[in-house]
Amino acid sequence: MQQHLMRRKRICEQHLQTLGGITSALGEKDSYTRAHGHRVALYAVRLARRLGLPAEDIRNIGIGGWFHDVGKLALSDHILTNREAHLSGELRQEVRCHPLIGAALLKHIDFLGPAVDFVLFHHERKDGSGYPFGLKDGEIPPGAKIVSIADCFDAVTTDRPYQKGQSIASAFKILRDGCRRCFCEAYVEVFIEEIEENGIIRNTGPASLLVDQLVRSAAGYPDM
């Protein structure tokens, strides 16, 4: 038993090093995307906790939020540094591949489990208009729905190369309007309650350590 645990720990350390290398590479390619991933993880965890989900589900959702855009490692630098609000059709198709690429990068790390699906499906929408598969409401895992809300909120409220961040009120309106075809309305309202009570994330700073704790706990290390 002891040998098995030691072997498991070595494998987990190797996987953690792999994940650390992936996030470092992403940060070197696009610092915004890495910081965005940290914030999305933290927002997703806050929503999952407020919904009363089990600890294991919260961890998986946090990990899915952290790595939701990791597939952008494979995108051209022109996309990541683009300062235009609208991309060409060819570049849009390239962007739509990032959930597939991200899931492929992560699928062999066994302890990530459902978190890989949250990466794969975070751009699916309840009316079937999302990508990469056009899934509809009941086909989308709840964790992916949570990550998509956190992703949208952070994208709207932070500065990007092609747009200035909008107000919290504007982000709330976008989320509520999106309930018609994109987001789970019940989750959106709970998320808005959470932000109204506890505020937005101004920076990731030491708070980003939570993400490392999420991964370690999912890998079989002591709970947070």
Rank of each mutant, 00 (worst) to 15 (best):
Q2V: 12
Q2N: 10
M6R: 10
K9M: 10
R10F: 08
C12R: 15
C12L: 12
L16C: 15
Q17C: 11
L19N: 02
L19I: 09
T23E: 14
S24Q: 14
A25F: 06
D30P: 02
T33V: 13
T33E: 11
H36N: 06
R39H: 13
A41I: 01
L42T: 07
V45K: 12
V45N: 08
L47M: 04
A48N: 09
R49S: 14
E56V: 13
I58R: 10
R59A: 15
R59C: 13
R59G: 15
N60C: 11
I63C: 09
G65L: 01
G65Q: 07
F67L: 11
F67D: 04
H68N: 04
D69P: 03
D69Q: 03
V70Q: 01
V70T: 13
G71N: 05
K72L: 02
L73Q: 05
S76N: 10
D77L: 08
L80P: 02
E84P: 01
A85H: 06
A85E: 13
H86T: 14
L87N: 06
G89S: 00
E90M: 07
L91S: 14
E94W: 06
E94Q: 11
E94I: 00
R96G: 07
C97W: 07
I101M: 09
A103T: 03
H108V: 04
I109W: 04
F111M: 06
L112R: 03
A115G: 04
F118G: 02
V119T: 02
L120P: 03
H122K: 08
H123L: 05
S129W: 08
Y131H: 13
P132K: 03
F133M: 12
L135W: 07
E139S: 01
E139G: 01
I140R: 09
G143D: 03
A144L: 01
A144G: 05
K145S: 07
I149D: 02
I149Y: 01
I149F: 01
A150G: 15
A150T: 07
D151E: 09
D151F: 00
A155N: 13
T158Y: 10
Q166D: 14
I168L: 13
S170K: 14
F172G: 00
F172I: 09
F172R: 15
I174T: 15
I174D: 12
I174A: 12
G178N: 02
C179A: 10
C182A: 11
C182V: 12
F183V: 03
C184Y: 04
E185W: 02
E185M: 00
A186D: 12
E189A: 03
V190F: 04
I192N: 09
E194N: 08
E197M: 08
E197P: 00
N198Q: 10
N198M: 02
I200S: 11
N203Y: 08
P206S: 11
S208C: 12
V211D: 15
Q213M: 12
Q213P: 02
V215E: 08
V215S: 08
R216N: 06
Y221R: 09
P222G: 07
D223W: 15
M224T: 11
